[in-house]
Design a binder for these strands. Structure first.
Length: 399
DNA sequence: AGCTGCGGGCCGC
DNA sequence: GCGGCCCGCAGCT
C-alpha cells in the first residue's frame, strides 16, 4: 500500500542524504546495516520520509520520543515498533490569540484522555476543540517506525505531516500542571481567603517556580551531562521544557525537508515572539478571567540564558559525542502556548545547521577530533549529523 | 491520570 | 499478507 510513493520519496531522501552514508536500508529489512559511519542527533520533529540511525545509548531514541503526538500502533511485529500520528488539536472556532497565534494543542495519546480532551474548551476563546487528524501518508496518519538493532536504533518515518506541530509533550505536561496548580490555587484561595499564609502566594497567581510543573524529570528530554551540570534544577527544567525549540534554525531540507512546513508549520512561530510582545494572548489554561499577568510572569520567569552546547535537549547525553558544543548563547524560555520564547539569536548559518538533507557544513558536526572515518575502535564513535530540528521555525508565518 | 508498549482481533484492499 | 485501527492489559511516572 502506497509503496510506490514511499519508495519514490525514499529514493529522493536517499539521494539527498549524506555522502556515501548507507541509507538504502528499510526498517523492514531482515538485516540492517551495522557499518554505520555516522549516527544522528535525536530528531524531535521528524517529518517526511526520513530515516535516522541513533545510538542505542540515546535515551530519547530508546524511549521512542517524538514531539509529534504519536500513538502506538500494532503492526504485529514485535521487532519493529510502529507509531502513528494523532495530528493536532485546534480551536473549532479557528480563533487567534491577541498576537495572532493559533491554538495547536497536543492530542492526548491515550484514547480516553483524548476524548476527554476534546470535550474541553479552547484555552483562548473557550470554543470547542477539534482534532485535526494527520493525513500525511496517503490519507493516513504519518507513521514512525523504531527498531533496535545492535548498537543502533533505526528510525524511519513515512509520510509528511499535513498539519501544524502540536505542543511538545513537555509543553502539554506543563500546561496540565499549570492548570492543576491554578485550579488548586483558586480553590485554596477561596478556602483560605482570610488566612495570612495565602499572601505568600499572592502577588500571585502561582509563579512558575511555585508550580509543580515543568518537568521534574530531568532526563525526560535529555541534556548532555556536561550541560546539565551547569544548570540549577529549575534552570534545567526550564531548559528541558525548551528542548523542543532549539535556538537554531533548521536546515532547509531537514528531515526530507517537506515544503509543506513552510505553509503550515506556524506552530513553531507560536513559540517565539519579540520580547516586547511577551504578554500572553493565550492563557495556558482556560481562564474564566483571563489574566495576562499570569502569562507575563511565566514568560519572564522562564527565561534563562543558555550557554554553550545547548541545542535543545535532544542530544544524546550518553551517546557518542554528547558534547559537540557549537558555542552560542541563547535565551530560551518555556514555551507553552501561553509562554513565549525570547528572541534569542537565531542562528544564521548557526553553529549547527546540519541536517541530512543539508549536506554542507558537515564538518560542523564532526567530532572535535579523531573521528576521521567516523569510527574508532569499532564503535560508532561518530558525530550525529544534526544538532536539532526546527531550524527555520522562526520563518514560518502565522496562519 | 496519562504515557507507553504489547498483543489479540477485526476490517478493507 | 499487509496496513490501519480498536481494544484491553500491564508497567511506569
Amino acid at each position: 500500500m502506497l509503496k510506490g510513493a514511499d519508495e519514490a520519496v525514499v529514493e529522493q531522501e536517499d539521494s539527498a542524504s549524506q555522502q556515501g552514508e548507507v541509507t538504502s536500508w528499510d526498517i523492514n529489512d531482515i538485516k540492517l546495516p551495522q557499518d554505520v559511519r555516522q549516527i544522528d542527533w535525536f530528531q524531535e520533529w521528524p517529518d517526511s520520509y526520513v530515516k535516522h540511525i541513533y545510538s542505542s545509548e540515546d535515551k530519547n531514541a530508546q524511549r521512542h520520543h517524538s514531539s509529534w503526538a504519536m500513538r502506538n500502533t500494532n503492526n504485529h511485529n514485535s521487532r519493529i515498533l510502529k507509531k502513528s500520528c494523532l495530528g493536532v488539536v485546534v480551536c473549532g472556532n479557528d480563533c487567534s490569540t491577541l498576537d495572532g497565534r493559533k491554538i495547536y494543542l497536543r492530542p492526548a495519546i491515550c484514547d480516553k484522555a483524548r476524548q476527554k480532551q476534546q470535550r474541553k474548551c479552547c484555552p483562548n476563546c473557550n470554543g470547542p476543540l477539534r482534532l485535526l487528524s494527520c493525513r500525511g501518508h496517503g490519507g493516513y496518519p504519518v507513521t514512525n517506525f523504531w527498531r533496535h538493532e545492535g548498537q543502533f536504533i533505526f528510525f524511519q518515518s513515512k509520510g509528511a505531516h499535513d498539519h501544524p506541530r502540536p505542543e511538545t509533550k513537555l509543553e502539554a505536561e506543563a500546561r496540565r500542571s499549570i492548570q492543576k496548580a491554578q485550579t488548586a490555587f483558586s480553590t485554596s484561595s477561596l478556602r483560605l481567603k482570610t488566612i495570612p499564609e495565602v499572601e505568600s502566594l499572592t502577588g500571585a497567581v502561582p509563579m512558575p517556580e511555585e508550580l509543580p510543573l515543568l518537568l521534574s524529570k530531568p532526563d525526560d528530554y535529555l541534556l548532555p551531562a556536561h550541560f546539565r551540570g551547569h544548570l540549577s534544577k529549575s534552570s534545567q527544567e526550564l531548559t528541558l521544557s525548551s528542548s523542543g525549540q532549539p535556538p537554531y534554525p533548521r536546515a532547509a531540507g531537514q528531515d526530507g525537508g517537506s515544503r509543506e512546513e513552510l505553509t503550515w508549520s506556524h506552530s513553531s512561530s507560536l513559540r517565539r515572539m519579540p520580547s516586547t510582545e511577551r504578554l500572553c494572548g493565550v492563557p495556558a489554561v482556560p481562564c474564566t478571567a483571563p489574566s495576562s499577568q499570569h502569562c507575563t510572569h511565566l514568560s519572564t520567569q522562564h527565561v534563562l540564558p543558555v550557554t554553550k552546547g545547548m541545542h535543545g535537549a535532544f542530544r544524546p547525553d550518553t551517546g557518542p559525542l554528547g558534547d559537540g558544543s557549537c558555542g552560542e548563547k541563547s535565551l530560551l524560555t518555556y514555551r507553552s502556548s501561553c509562554v513565549s520564547l525570547l528572541p534569542y539569536p537565531v542562528a544564521q548559518g548557526g553553529p549547527c545547521p546540519m541536517a541530512r538533507g543539508a549536506k554542507p557544513h558537515s564538518q560542523l558536526l564532526e567530532p572535535p577530533r579523531g573521528s576521521e572515518g567516523g569510527r574508532a575502535k569499532g564503535s560508532p564513535q561518530v558525530g550525529p549529523r544534526y544538532c536539532n530540528d526546527d531550524m527555520f521555525s522562526d520563518l514560518y508565518p502565522l496562519r
